[in-house]
């Protein structure tokens, strides 16, 4: 019997696909959000801050349930989704959404820390040298916060790989279509005789995490050497 069944392989591939998609979609949004929160003052700032950070403190199951009731067939966002012809529950896109929402505050936190470390006068200097706000964002703020972007993205990717509570509720646990590594392990752990398969998947999860974190360390070190 092979160490990993084909369903396990599907789960691994799906996990990577969900985590990667969630991270890639969140990156530009997270960057813009961090930029707004760092460099601008506006009224709804505190409210926005609380909303974005809520998934950090709420149990993921609560997040999943809230997503389910708002995106489900009779949810309040259903008409909007119907308009675009998309379905965001019980498919892999739902898993992406769950991961994105739960991982977003981690991504933003890292980027903001990096942006807050940028000397405001560098931004002013670029403006007086003829750069508009977008130009300054791309030519000064982005390169100077790139280490935060890298850290945030790796953190978010790793968090997405481990996302369980929100995913199981909003995406379900269907082998081959929405079953990610944690959900598969959960299945094995609750069925008799599944220990070996569960352990193999655990090993894969550890392997991927170690790979992501060491890749992150190496990248950050390289960036630090460059500046």
């Amino acid at each position: 019997m092979p160490l990993l069944s084909s369903a396990d392989c599907d789960a691994i591939i799906l996990s990577l696909k969900v985590a990667l998609t969630a991270t890639l979609i969140s990156l530009p949004l997270g960057f813009l959000y961090a930029y707004l929160m760092t460099f601008f003052r506006f009224r709804a700032k505190v409210l926005l801050e609380v909303l974005v950070n809520l998934p950090l403190t709420l149990p993921p199951v609560v997040m999943g349930y809230l997503l389910l009731v708002s995106l489900g067939r009779n949810g309040w966002l259903a008409p909007l989704l119907d308009l675009f012809g998309v379905r965001l529950i019980f498919n892999w896109k739902a898993a992406v959404l769950a991961s994105a929402i739960v991982g977003f505050p981690l991504l933003v936190r890292s980027i903001r820390i990096a942006m807050e470390g940028i000397d405001g006068r560098l931004v002013q200097a670029s403006r007086t040298l003829g750069a508009g706000p977008v130009d300054t964002l791309l030519s000064v703020i982005l390169p100077l916060s790139v280490s935060g972007v890298v850290s945030g993205a790796s953190l978010m990717f790793a968090r997405s790989l481990g996302e369980f509570g929100a995913t199981i509720i909003v995406a379900g646990n269907m082998p081959g279509s929405t079953q990610t590594i944690p959900l598969a392990i959960y299945d094995y752990a609750s069925s008799p005789g599944g220990e070996r398969a569960a352990l193999s998947l655990c090993a894969v999860a550890v392997g991927i995490s170690v790979f992501v974190l060491s890749g992150h360390e190496a990248l950050v070190k390289r960036l630090a050497r460059r500046t």
């Binding site: 560098l122 007086t128 040298l129 750069a131 508009g132």
Partner: peptide
């Protein structure tokens, strides 16, 4: 007029060169 269109350059107390 926004700063980038004023054509006024600024030299700061401590250089403020772009470190990257």
């Amino acid at each position: 007029v926004p700063p980038q269109r004023r054509c006024i350059s600024l030299v700061f107390q401590d250089a403020c060169l772009f470190p990257h």
